[in-house]
Design a protein around this nucleic acid. Structure first.
Length: 557
RNA sequence: GGGUCCGUAGCCUAGCCUGGAUAGGGCGACAGCCUUCUAAGCUGUAGAUCGAGAGUUCGAAUCUCUCCGGACCCGCCA
């Protein structure tokens, strides 16, 4: 609003078509700045003089208090009391809707998580789970319809390996977390198979039986598959991910093979070394294997069948795959093949890439068994959280302790996956993972809890004199609050939940600075009223941004 | 060999799309702040050839090119 007014003023005076304002690095310089370099060529004068001249020509208005030249910059000071009042009132009125975008009438399908059955969930999966859920929330908040889908590999060689382990390693079945247990069996079977060709043959045999629906193996497959799916359901619930649709590889395998054969007929695919391939060398995309020499479809071939199914079930305007960088080539091949077959998804598909989660010693691999398992990590995080809560609250109920430790641990875990740029690799570090200080999720929650604590102690009245809010910390907070809707829009436009994560951190930081230097409860009565309204608005926006990240905002910590 | 991404203080990272005032944070280090609203916090100090070079520009961490280093992928795993 203020920005628009300044731009209008400048456009009139300078006759420029596009005006881009900047925010000065320091508050004392002004609220908005217009760099005059761009005019120096036009007027053949140095920018410092131009800035000076413009100050004489432009007159302050009701919303713009002062216009000042500082070197080559023309700086604008806006009417802060109006800004303050408008912002706080808007937030307190709109509440959880503050920052929400207009309805777009477009449907986006977001596919993420994609953990396979018969393998354990590890921290790599946590990145897609966190990212997928947060991106979904951001898009929904910005006004899109979002369908969360999960396409899980429940068939194929990895299952055969796990079943071989189940039959031959003679491990005792635990009472719960059977899926995790199967994941460990898978890793061990893999290790054994690599050193022993006989075992490899046995696994191949099981795989064949799986595909040919051998009765005994199919039964075992069904049983173990259920163990894993039960574990996944528990995970979704505690982690806070909800899928609208679960797809399984086994459901689209048959149709996948059919489509592959159709591609052969159409001349898009061809036979090579016993397998069926699409030669994409022309497009610099290499060779895309769609049927193995055993005649089975590979995971991404089944994506063709999945595409059909998705389109039948939903009206999709955009299909986004939240999958790691290592599969970039496959997605490029898949999308190119969509193009070649005139699929409706051809121009609607996108691979939302995120960098690998690595170990200090290198790439993780559940085949090798050198992974950080989700269960191990989260249990350790729970322990740390519990210890810290207990040290603060001696008399806390068991139920409350349980709830809070989960809120805090999940905040730490999710935030660590969300606050960095998607493309960056994450090198996992136990020390960092178990630390809840500094740039972390709990830091943001802490700011929220502190506000709650103040608000609980005092009655808040909506009427206040907002002119009284003028310390640098207060102005900072107001400006941060105002920026939220724009941040949401950017995050949605670029599919970058990290923008929201970094924003919420900044807002929490601004609050902590405010908190140290400005008393609320003990302030003079009128100032107290104004500050209570301010922090209530901050609490709301912290809560809204945490919500977008899939992180809970506890009232107490 | 080809392709994509990453490279910002001892370590981790924001900013890069859309170029602009002294490059923001965090961890770690050092010095402080709990008889005042939760110290999972705050303040201060030290620490940066923004991988290197060239180009474009009045102006480059940001755009272009080359090179170097790292990660990942490039036919039957997903």
């Amino acid at each position: 609003m203020f920005e628009q007014e300044i731009i209008k003023l400048l456009k009139k005076e300078t006759k420029l078509k596009e005006i881009k304002l900047e925010v000065p690095p320091d508050q004392s310089l002004g609220d908005f700045a217009f760099p005059c370099f761009q005019l120096s060529k036009k007027y053949k004068k140095n920018p410092v003089e131009i800035a000076k001249e413009l100050t004489n020509k432009l007159k302050p208005t009701k919303n713009i208090k002062e216009i000042k030249a500082t070197g080559p910059y023309l700086n604008f000071f806006i009417n802060k009391s109006k800004l303050t009042e408008d912002t706080i009132k808007q937030i307190l009125k709109e509440k959880e809707k503050y920052g929400k975008g207009k309805k777009k009438n477009k449907t986006i399908m977001l596919e993420f998580f994609h953990a396979n059955t018969h393998k354990a969930v590890h921290i790599g999966h946590i990145r897609t789970a966190s990212l997928g859920e947060a991106t979904s929330r951001v898009l929904e908040f910005d006004g899109y319809n979002v369908i969360r889908a999960n396409y899980q590999g429940d068939i194929g060689p990895h299952v055969a390996k796990c079943l071989w382990g189940y039959l031959n390693l003679k491990k005792k079945e635990p009472k719960d977390n059977k899926g995790v247990w199967l994941g460990k069996i898978y890793a061990e079977a893999n290790k054994k198979a690599r050193q022993n060709e006989k075992i490899q043959e046995e696994i191949k045999e099981i795989n064949k039986k799986l595909y040919s629906k051998d009765k005994k193996i199919t039964e075992l497959w069904k049983k173990t598959r259920k163990y894993c799916i039960d574990d996944f359901n528990d995970f979704y619930k505690t982690f806070g991910v909800k899928f609208n649709r679960l797809y399984f590889e086994s459901q689209v395998e048959k149709r996948g093979v059919e489509i592959a054969k159709e591609l052969l007929k159409k001349g898009i695919a061809k036979e090579s070394e016993g397998a069926l391939i699409v030669d994409l060398n022309k497009y610099n995309l290499g060779i895309y294997v769609i049927l193995t020499s055993d005649g089975h479809a590979v995971y991404h071939t089944k994506d063709f069948a999945l595409a059909e199914l998705k389109l039948k079930e939903y009206k999709i305007d955009k299909s986004i795959h939240v999958v790691g960088k290592e599969q970039e080539m496959y997605f490029n091949q898949l999308f190119k093949t969509f193009e070649l077959t005139n699929s409706k998804l051809a121009n609607k598909s996108m691979h939302l890439i995120y960098g690998l989660v690595m170990l200090p010693e290198g790439k993780m691999s559940s085949r090798e068994g050198n992974v950080i398992l989700y269960e191990d990590l989260i249990q350790n995080m729970f322990k740390i959280a519990e210890k810290q809560i207990k040290s603060r609250h001696k008399k806390i109920s068991k139920k409350e302790l349980e709830k809070r430790k989960q809120q805090i641990a999940f905040a730490a875990l999710k935030f660590s996956m969300l606050n960095r740029e998607n493309n960056k690799q994450i090198i996992f570090d136990w020390d960092k993972a178990l630390k809840f200080e500094g740039k972390t999720g709990p830091y943001i929650q802490y700011a929220h809890a502190r506000i709650s604590s103040i608000l609980k102690r005092s009655k808040i009245k909506p009427k206040a004199d907002f002119n009284l809010l003028k310390t640098p910390e207060e102005i900072n907070l107001i400006k941060s609050l105002r920026a939220f809707p724009e941040i949401v829009e950017e995050a949605s436009k670029h599919y970058k939940a990290s923008l929201v994560a970094n924003y919420s951190l900044k807002l929490a930081q601004s609050f902590s600075e405010f908190y140290e230097k400005n008393q609320v409860i003990k302030a003079e009565e009128n100032l107290k009223k104004a500050r209570l309204n301010l922090i209530k608005a901050v609490k709301q926006v912290l809560k809204n941004s945490l919500f977008l990240l899939g992180i809970e905002a506890p009232e107490e910590m």
